[in-house]
Design a protein around this nucleic acid. Structure first.
Lengths: 212, 212
DNA sequence: ATGATTATTTGACCTAAGTCAAATTTCCTG
DNA sequence: CAGGAAATTTGACTTAGGTCAAATAATCAT
């Protein structure tokens, strides 16, 4: 999920590749960016007040399974991932880079125990936004509800695209798609995480890479 | 996606099965339901004013591919489906029953041409809500933004669960899962639609059914 | 009802991707 | 920089699910 308030938003937008659905979603990022830039001084400072910056070491877990997700974690530096356990095996669901937001969505929204873990893949700095403080801020400043909506819409579109990929692409195509859309993932992240993210086995992914 | 304003919401909630993620999502439906019940008279009547009721014959297409999705279609009666074309084959992405909302999400949000079709599977009555009128209503009544957020959150959680199913269940398990969660789908809808919805071939689905 | 479409099932065969195991290669850490 | 652990690759084999084709079964319009 995309970042709440980012200093380098415009730059980030340009990193995104020219794939069709991605082009469309770019316009949503732009909307979010503009919205943040036009936020009132008051709203902006409230967000800053209820956010805290923390650092995590490589491998450290920000949110455990069964724990209720109290924060949205906005990545300032480093890489996070979300994953859950299936038959004891880790299934990675998302990688979060600078300016992305990590959140166990259903746990956060419903304030129920999380299925997912959130973990730092590298040493990371994140800005954490507390659920209850944000709820209160939203009740006082309706602009923040709009912002929340824009970001949630973005996440839903991201999920729709993920689903589309699973529905229409085979293992090789999914890998190539990832390679062209988020090359930074392939470079910086262990194959085992990438394999489960793509829904294929580690060995198959290795063979796909060998062929290309 | 769930319905915007429903008369029989409570009833609908009870139809939902007792699966773990589904239990959680029930609470979101409840939130939506309560929110609608507590909407001011004014907001409620605005929604009614900008909605129009229409009927569609079985097979009729409400939204074509490449057309921009101008409405959310809230099902009052009948069944709709969403699908897109991949290699000339129809891939069904969602079935919509009474009190569900059909919308080509990214097309609606970004007001860009739709990848998906929306079609009536049976003769149907829907209440259509115009994008621009709703945007205007939201700008005047911030309560409607909150409602939009709740519904979008619900849709995102639904998508997350779909993705989880593709990630963790095999063909048989996905079918059984559907059978226990939405038996009405299996009863009323052609197998070919169900097969593509589950991401399996028609023949395989038929064999799975034969075994059970 | 009856013939014609359309939907579903069944059969034979094929292939993408998984599994298990071992060999390398890479990466840490003392 | 050596030794061990972790990550990745390669090999041999298996299997879930796909494809193509034909046979039934169900549905619909006249």
């Amino acid at each position: 999920m995309r970042l709440l308030f980012s200093k380098v938003f415009t730059e980030n937008i340009n990193k995104i590749q020219n794939e069709l659905p991605t082009i469309f979603m770019k316009s949503q990022l732009q909307k979010i960016n503009e919205f943040i830039n036009n936020l009132g001084r008051e709203e902006y400072s409230i967000l800053e007040k209820i956010s805290t910056t923390k650092t995590y070491k490589k491998g450290e877990v920000l949110l455990h399974q069964n724990e209720t997700c109290r924060f949205t974690y906005s990545v300032e530096k480093g890489i996070l991932r979300k994953f859950y356990l299936n038959d004891g095996k880790e299934i990675t669901t998302e990688f979060l880079f600078e300016d992305d937001i990590a959140v166990s969505f259903d746990s956060y929204v419903l304030q129920k125990p999380s299925r997912e873990f959130i973990q730092a893949i590298t040493d990371s700095t994140v800005s954490q936004l507390d659920y209850h403080s944000f709820q209160e801020a939203k009740s006082l400043h309706s602009e923040l509800v709009k912002l929340d909506l824009l970001i949630t819409e973005y996440y839903a579109m991201w999920l729709e695209n993920r689903l589309l990929e699973f529905h229409t692409l085979n293992a090789t195509q999914r890998y190539l798609h990832l390679l062209s859309n988020q090359p930074e993932i392939i470079q910086q992240i262990p194959l085992s995480y990438i394999a489960s993210y793509l829904g294929i086995s580690l060995e198959t992914l290795s063979r796909i890479r060998a062929k290309i």
